[in-house]
Write a protein that binds this DNA or RNA. Structure first.
Lengths: 161, 161
DNA sequence: ACTTGACTTAAACATTTGTTCAAGTTCGAG
DNA sequence: CTCGAACTTGAACAAATGTTTAAGTCAAGT
């Protein structure tokens, strides 16, 4: 009885034939539809078109978008992301070779970034030890301070959606 | 004889009276003069003006520029950097309080960045294990691959000057 | 069938982070 | 003093990364 070819019980919940509209992809990935179209213009993602010229994305595109946003969030420009993604040629099957090469590229980049973060932390630590930025006279000599600023308010540094 | 108030022996090498022109600051910081002017317009650095309206920077500005570029290199926008630097009010002495607060801000940001890098690495590892990105069929099943791309050439991912 | 919300495009606009240019001024060395 | 290099300003341009808008088309529920 299982797997009979009758059209059984698929009555209520048939939301997507394993494909996503751009709106659905936008909702699920958290990336605006306009951005997705932009990525597609840039060749970072691809879509099938319906007879009515609408985009349909395979579910795998969700992961692909994640692969675009992750490096982007750490400041890597789309062009660089695209050049890694471009290692996956459309005619050929994405190979483990591809993943290994891409991973090498990214991990070098990631390590460089992490090194920069550490340098920054060191710089800060050094300056906290010293205590002076634009002051020739260290404030340790002058411990009379009040810093009323930084009152109420968000003080967000970078948008983290 | 030391520290006598005679104008002794300061004949040949008196390059800067502890102040830098914009060109010198550019050379020493590695930041273009145009960028330094831009930073000044944005209120990130400040300068004294000569009687002829030229900028003169204190040597401490060198470090201040480093403090601008370090977060910037990891993708933090100038506005955010400015909002931290703005915790240092001009009328007041920069206090150790300031450094501690600023450091808290940055280290939170740094940690968030590092977490993102790690997430990215995880995502990659997961996908290498799986082997498929847009492919429903894992290529481990199909180990016949050639990836002729990535031939000669730089393959730089991100400019690292 | 009709209606409404989601989709399409191209083009214009926005933001960030500067660079370049033109025209003029200042600084420092000889 | 005079000359060239360095400085000044404002404005235009640039590239990356999208968003918004206008005008129209498609899809799906009732």
């Amino acid at each position: 009885m299982f797997k009979s070819s009758t059209v059984a019980t698929v009555t209520s919940l048939a939301p997507d034939a394993d494909e996503l509209t751009i709106g659905e992809l936008a909702d699920r990935s958290g990336v605006a539809a306009s951005a997705l179209r932009f990525y597609e213009r840039q060749g970072l993602i691809r879509s099938r078109r319906t007879v009515g010229n609408q985009r349909r994305y395979s579910r795998a595109t969700l992961r692909q978008v994640a692969f675009i946003r992750a490096p982007q969030n750490v400041g890597i420009p789309l062009a660089a992301i695209g050049s890694v993604l471009a290692l996956l040629p459309e005619g050929q099957t994405p190979t483990r070779e591809f993943w290994i090469r891409a991973s090498e590229c990214w991990s070098a980049e990631l390590n460089a970034r992490i090194r920069q973060l550490e340098r920054m932390r060191d710089l800060f630590t050094e300056c906290i030890g010293c205590g002076c930025l634009s002051l020739d006279q260290c404030e340790l000599i002058n411990p009379d301070d009040k810093l009323g600023a930084l009152g109420p308010g968000p003080h967000r540094l970078v948008k983290h959606p």
